[in-house]
Amino acid sequence: MLALRACDGLERNREACKKLVTEALKVLPQAKRKQLQRFVKTQSILVSKEHKRAGKGLDSADQGLVLADLAPDLVAAVFSHLGPCSLAVAACVCRTWRTDASKESRWRSIYEKAHGIPVRAESFTSRKHYFRDSVAEIFKGKGRQCLPYRSGRRLRDGCPIWLDDSVDHDSSPLLCLFVKEVTAYIVEGKGFALPPLLRGRHHQVHQHIGPWN
């Protein structure tokens, strides 16, 4: 924090500040973290005001805040690639994202994929958010463990136990849902090996991803 104060305000130090903050956030306890976040918030507001006064506007490159102003149809296109867990997270991000990520049509297609069959339109229309709730029902208690949260910590620590159970019945549509999220990390080369459970199952994993692409 002290180090931050020392270098705040200086333009060229901003990149370094950002790194410092992210590092510090990992280490500090909860209370300290909140304090730091507040501090950073006020600071960055100051910075942006100064910028506006100078007539420059925020330079997106050195802020890392680049994807803020995606067009709505682009956001929609992005969301169509998301699995259930990520979609639920996206809904919690901000108002515009919530509106899009809560659309029943999205959850409906996930629901259909999970069950492997198309649903008849008229059968479920009576309840609001029927599909979202039913998908949530499937994932309850499991979603938390399935997410390779925060740069793959969960996966690196070892494969979640539930995956063990569902791999036994290979055709389980539930597995397909998870595998997509999990393998994205593995396939995209995020820097760690295939979890032991999935080792030697590349082919199978890809098969599972198949219908999702």
């Binding site: 994807l67 995606l70 992005v78 969301f79 690639h81 998301l82 699995g83 990520s86 997270v89 996206a90 919690c92 991000v93 997410l147 390779p148 949260y149 925060r150 740069s151 793959g152 999220e181 994205a184 990390y185 995209e188």
Partner: peptide, 11 residues
């Protein structure tokens, strides 16, 4: 690619 950026992060 962008969807992959969202994946596995907290809000």
């Amino acid at each position: 690619g962008i969807a992959n950026l969202i994946r596995g992060k907290s809000p």
